[in-house]
Simulated scan of single mutants.
Amino acid sequence: MDGNYSGTLVSRLARADTLIHLDYSTGLCLWRVLRRATLGWGRVRADTGPGCPERFNAEFLRFVVNYRRDQRARDMERMADFAGEVHRFTRPAELTAFIAAQRSA
């Protein structure tokens, strides 16, 4: 699963066997959102639906800036009861190493 739809997190976790949590810093997330909006402005990305061009979204930007303060603790609580395999990464290099290990396994 992918996304920040915390309202459905519990039901999605109930159907999952593995959790990969990208617990990146606010600064990194903010940088990536701004870079994506700037570099992709007006273009449709391959990972989005047709007719959904990249744009600047102030509401989403506020969500990213305030996520750790307003919602992270609740999401961490919801993930704490997950019975499956958990992989939590706080830096992109950790995720890269994990993916490389999975490919060579």
Rank of each mutant, 00 (worst) to 15 (best):
R15H: 09
A97L: 05
R55H: 13
R62G: 01
F89V: 02
D47A: 03
A97C: 01
V65Q: 13
A93E: 06
E59L: 04
T96M: 14
D23A: 11
Y67H: 09
G51W: 08
L19D: 10
L61T: 09
T26M: 11
A105F: 03
C29M: 12
F63S: 09
R55D: 10
A105S: 14
A73R: 15
F63C: 11
D2A: 05
A58N: 00
E54A: 12
L9E: 01
D23Q: 06
R69I: 08
G84W: 02
Y67M: 09
A101M: 01
D70E: 12
T26D: 07
D81E: 13
P50T: 04
N4W: 02
A37I: 05
H87G: 03
D70F: 04
E77M: 08
N4S: 04
T18K: 09
R36S: 13
T90A: 13
D81L: 10
F63V: 10
R103A: 05
P53Y: 05
E77S: 10
R62I: 04
N66C: 10
V10M: 08
V65I: 15
I20K: 03
P50F: 06
S104L: 11
S104W: 02
V44N: 06
R45E: 02
R15G: 11
C29Y: 01
A73S: 15
Y67Q: 05
D23E: 09
E94G: 03
